[in-house]
Amino acid sequence: MIKSIFLCSVMLLVFSANTMAHAIRFEVEKHYPAVTVHAYFTKTSPLVDAYVEVFSPGNEEAFQKGHTDKHGFFTFRPDENGNWKVSVDDGMGHFDRVTVEVSDKFFMNEESIKAEEPAKAEETKIVSDDKPEEVKQAEIPLIYRIIFGLSLIFGLTGIIYGIKAKQLLKNK
């Protein structure tokens, strides 16, 4: 029995480690003069009309406030380099923050635009606080997670039932 509980715990830890990043995901595109943040749970379920606050580097007062559009996008225009914080809150218990690093390279694109050259996106990447990129890529199908969860619940029920049954037999 102890072996089963141990095995269950190990599986749960391993499984949850692989899926830990599937709360809110962020995709940040920096393309002078704007930074666009895409907030979503999965590519097909964006955070629609979520409340967004943008904080400029070192400031605790919001630089900009607004809501994501129906596709989960929000755009702002940074005016200085540094680490910009963007917080997203859908008002339903889903809240997360993302740090957007705005470097000199971002503002250098300004020159290319002024020179009427086609501007290039500085970089496109998925960023989310303290969640490594490779973890985000591990998309375990929902059905497997449901089966896994149900297995845990029924397994746990079985274990508790077994313990109770043993106690009953002992008392008899």
Binding site: S16, M20, G149, I153
Partner: peptide
């Protein structure tokens, strides 16, 4: 128990 599993499996 359910909230714990939902948190670990579905975040």
């Amino acid at each position: 128990t359910v909230v714990l599993f939902q948190s670990m499996i579905f975040q």
